[in-house]
């Protein structure tokens, strides 16, 4: 009996080496441990043994059974591995490059814009917008810059023909339609459409009748800010701008407010920035933005009572900030769209 079992296990082991598929495995399993399998037959023979022989033989059968089960387990892993290899194909060389294009990138102006908006959001400013083609009233008159005000000389404006009608900026009377020269027109639209208090930032495209060179562009981007509330002060303006500059240019950046003139703010300032981290522009006062307290006349023109409401406003050039932050020396790079430029800021 012992010899018979040993032969059986040896035969099964030998036979197992030929098993490659799941079907062969099932057939092999049936031949050994199935109802008519060789091992099953031996186990059935136990009944004919004497009381004394049974424990001895039983032990031998158990050992043989254990060997066969181990054999089957090994075979199952082998068969499964073969199946997986068949399903997945050849192995992957993980050191090969991915054939897919990498993620794209945001334009440096968008990136700068989002960074600026994020810092103002922390101060409770939300984004507002308005049309790029505007009425003269929204762009100038409502901002306390009537026709023949010398402040109109500060910028040269692109106009649409008299016959032009904008669906987004309908005329109030027969005023000219123009390409907005600043995002300050969004101040006007916001004051007319919302109830104070509010704080908004308005990023957007502006246009001037300027020849294109390294620092001028026929269109450019601004971010406008407006805070209307009761008792808004110059200290608030300084607080807001100081926060923005430290967020954008680092904690060691400083600002100064240099008195200036805009028709829509009083008092008006140019905000200068000085930072040790701006390459060859480090440690110099650089003009960054115009700002001031909203002129009471503007509040009035936009339907707010200047005795109740006050405000602060500021406007900065996105290109200027992006150029300073990234050390870009020519504004035309932003509009050339050479991906060797665009992808540097990913």
């Amino acid at each position: 009996m012992q010899q018979q079992l040993a032969q059986l296990v040896a035969a099964a082991t030998q036979e197992a080496s030929a098993v490659a598929t799941r079907a062969e495995l099932e057939a092999f399993k049936a031949r050994v441990v199935g109802p008519n399998g060789s091992l099953t037959q031996v186990m059935k023979g136990m009944a004919t043994l004497s009381k004394e022989e049974r424990p001895v033989v039983g032990k031998l059968i158990n050992e043989a059974k254990k060997s066969v089960e181990e054999l089957l387990a090994v075979l199952l892993v082998k068969v499964e591995n073969a199946e997986i290899a068949a399903a997945l194909g050849a192995s992957v060389d993980p050191t090969l490059p991915s054939p897919d294009a990498p993620a794209g990138s945001l334009h440096p102006l968008s990136r700068t814009r989002e960074r600026i908006l994020a810092s103002f959001r922390k101060l409770g400013f939300v984004v507002a917008d308005g049309p790029e083609v505007e009425t003269e009233w929204h762009c100038f008159d409502a901002l306390n810059t009537p026709a023949d005000h010398p402040a109109r000389d500060m910028q040269d404006t692109l106009y649409m023909p008299k016959a032009f009608r904008s669906a987004d900026a309908p005329r109030k009377a027969d005023e000219a339609i123009l390409l907005r020269t600043h995002t300050s027109s969004v101040q006007v639209r916001t004051m007319l459409s919302r109830k104070p208090p509010f704080r908004i930032v308005a990023p957007g495209r502006c246009f001037r009748r300027d020849a294109v060179d390294a620092t001028h562009s026929a269109n450019f981007h601004q971010v406008e800010g407006l805070w209307i509330d009761r008792n808004v002060t110059l200290a608030d303006l300084r607080g807001v701008l100081d926060f923005f500059v430290k967020e954008t240019f680092g904690a060691d950046a400083e600002i100064r407010l240099r008195p200036s003139f805009f028709p829509f703010t009083e008092p008006s300032f140019e905000m200068d920035l000085r930072s040790p981290n701006l390459g060859r522009l480090s440690n110099r006062w650089l003009e960054i933005m115009g700002c001031g307290l909203v002129d009471p006349k503007v509040l009035e023109l936009c339907g707010l009572d200047p005795n109740e409401w006050s405000g602060l406003a500021f406007g900065l050039g996105l290109e200027r900030i992006a150029m300073l932050v990234h050390g870009i020396d020519d504004i035309r790079h932003f509009y050339n769209n050479d991906t060797r430029f665009l992808r540097q800021f990913a």
Partner: peptide, 11 residues
């Protein structure tokens, strides 16, 4: 999705 943003003149 792999696209790079551009910025062109409006005019």
């Amino acid at each position: 999705a792999g696209f790079t943003e551009c910025c062109h003149y409006s005019l």
